[in-house]
Design a protein around this nucleic acid. Sequence first.
DNA 1: TATTGTTATACTCTATAACTATA
DNA 2: TATAGTTATAGAGTATAACAATA
Lengths: 153, 153
Amino acid sequence: MSVQNNVEAETPRLAAAEIADDIGLLLAKVHAVGSSLNNRALAAFELRERSYSVLRLACSGLEPTQRELADFLSLDPSQIVALVDELEKRKLVTREQGRTDRRQKIVLATRAGERLHAEAETAVRASEAAQYAPLAPGELATLRELLRKALWA
Amino acid sequence: MSVQNNVEAETPRLAAAEIADDIGLLLAKVHAVGSSLNNRALAAFELRERSYSVLRLACSGLEPTQRELADFLSLDPSQIVALVDELEKRKLVTREQGRTDRRQKIVLATRAGERLHAEAETAVRASEAAQYAPLAPGELATLRELLRKALWA
DNA sequence: TATTGTTATACTCTATAACTATA
DNA sequence: TATAGTTATAGAGTATAACAATA
C-alpha cells in the first residue's frame, strides 16, 4: 500500500504542527503527490516523469545536448545516458553528433517520439489540472513564477 | 558527480523551452535542489530529510501515531517503521502504546532527541534561507500559502 | 471485516568514482 | 588539463503484498 496515490482531501491533525510551515516539507508533499499522479498518467505510454521530460526537451526544437539535459533536469549525466538509451531503443529519440564539438551528442525526437509526446502531454496536463484544482488560475501562475524565480532569479 | 549540489545560478538555454513552464518540472527541480541542500545540512547530525521530519513531529507535542506520520509525510506506513526503528535505536525517540487503541504506537522524542532536533533545525533554516534568497520575504510567504492551499484547500 | 503496525521484496532514484574520446 | 559521454556500484526512496494483533 502506498500513500502517494491519495490526494489528501481534509486537513490532517498534524497540519497544526509548526512543521506544516516548513517550505521543504510542503514542497516534498506537493512533489510526491504530483509525481505519483504524473507517473500514473504516463504509465499508459510506458513513460515516467523523467523519460517524459527528456522526450519533451527532445521535441522542443532546442536540440539539447546530453549535458544540457543533465543540467536543466537536475540529473547526473550518467542518468541521462540511461534515459536516452531507453528512449533510443524504443525509437522515440536519436543521438546526433554535435555540430561543433564531436564529444557532444544532441538528442532529437523521431516522428514516433513526437506523436507519443503529444499524447502523453495531454494526459499529464489533465493530471496536473486535477492536482491544482484548488488553486485559481492566477494563483497557479503565481506559483509557477515564484518557483522559477527561486531557481533562476 | 552529481548535479543536485549545484544551485543553478544562471538561466540555462533550455529554460526557453515550453517545458520550463511545466509546474511539475519546476517543483521537481526546486525540490531536488532543496533536498540535496537539506541532506547536506543534516549530514552533520546523521539525519536525512525524512528522519528529520519524523523527529520534528515527535518533538511537536502532538503525540503522533505512526499512521498519522505516514499520512502527513506522504510515506508508506512500512517506511515509517524503518525510520522510527532507526531513531529509536539511537535513543532519539520512543514508541508508546496508544491511549485508547492498543494497536497504535505514539512516537515521542527523548530529551536527546529534542536537543538534536534543535540543532538540526538551525542548520536546516540556514540552508533554506540560502536556497530562497532570491525571493523576498513576502514572496516566500506566498509560496508557502499556495503550496498549503494546493494540498489542503 | 477493517485497521495498525510489521516484514519482505522488487524496482526506481541518488550519489560517487573511474574510464574514453575529444577539446 | 578540462569537458562530454559512458560504465559501474552502493545506498536511499517508492510501490506492493501479506501477516499478526487489535478494533
